[in-house]
Simulated assay, not measured.
Amino acid sequence: MSGRTPSRWEELTAADPAHSTWYVERFRALAAEGTDIVGEARLVDAMLDRGSRVLDAGCGPGRVGGYLHRAGHVVVGVDVDPVLIAAAEQDYPGPTWIVGDLAELDLPGRGIAADFDVIVCAGNVMTFLAPSTRETVLAGFARNLAPAGRVVVGFGADRGYEFSQFLTDAENAGLTVDLRLSTWDLRPFTDESDFLVAVLSRAV
């Protein structure tokens, strides 16, 4: 970890090495029970033409990116946790799964074009980042978008990242908020909402 700030997720897994495996098995069990675990991916799919390029930022064990790959999109998934990436490779073959830090995102350096039609950041990923890296991560999203691309971010309240601060950070990172929702199934955002789904584009 020297030379970089560990994310809150890394701190969590360092304190409890079994946490990542528990997380993987939790979603495998939900899927086996027939629980809908791809609502975020369906929203993203509705925004895209077939064969679009998608970055699943903080992809975890691959549920969102895996669905979008099966729907016909070209998917790259990045997560800092190698246990989660290994599960994504096993459960959802097809996308390009990468172990990487979103705060140090250099996809062109890995031979991957920075021209994504959508960057999706679901699963409260923004709240697991080190606070000092949040704006850097958002700027990386802006940098890796296609000219007309969009970023879709979702996370809950009371997780240490105020919605108002996120919106300020996004603006400072070169992103414009196009739409705010309170759920992944398109319910409108209000002052009482305890969840935010933000659709953003690169500021002109």
Rank of each mutant, 00 (worst) to 15 (best):
Asn144Lys: 12
Asp158Ser: 15
Pro108Tyr: 09
Ile119Leu: 14
Phe189Gln: 08
Gly154Asp: 05
Val177Met: 05
Gly51Cys: 13
Arg202Gln: 12
Gln165Glu: 14
Trp9Ser: 06
Ala29Thr: 13
Gly34Asp: 10
Thr96Arg: 13
Ala103Tyr: 01
Asp16Lys: 06
Glu171Leu: 02
Pro61Phe: 03
Ala148Lys: 14
Ala71Pro: 00
Leu107Glu: 00
Glu104Cys: 15
Asp169Val: 01
Tyr23Leu: 09
Leu200Pro: 00
Leu138Cys: 10
His69Arg: 14
Leu84His: 09
Gln165Met: 14
Ser201Ile: 03
Gly156Trp: 00
Gly58Gln: 08
Val76Arg: 00
Ala71Tyr: 06
Ala198Gln: 00
Ile85Leu: 02
Asp91Pro: 01
Trp22Asp: 14
Ser7Pro: 00
Thr35Trp: 09
Leu105Arg: 07
Pro147Trp: 08
Val64Arg: 03
Val78Thr: 10
Val80Glu: 06
Glu40Thr: 10
Arg134Val: 09
Glu11Phe: 05
Asp79Ser: 09
Ala148Arg: 13
Thr183Ile: 10
Thr96Gln: 08
Ile112Leu: 03
Glu10Phe: 08
Cys59Leu: 11
Arg70Gln: 08
Asp56Val: 03
Asp81Met: 05
Phe155Leu: 10
Leu175Asp: 11
Ile85Tyr: 01
His19Lys: 13
Leu175Met: 14
Ala41Gln: 03
Phe141Lys: 07
Phe155Cys: 12
Arg50Phe: 05
Arg180Glu: 11
Gly72Val: 09
Leu84Ser: 11
Phe141Gly: 03
Val151Phe: 01
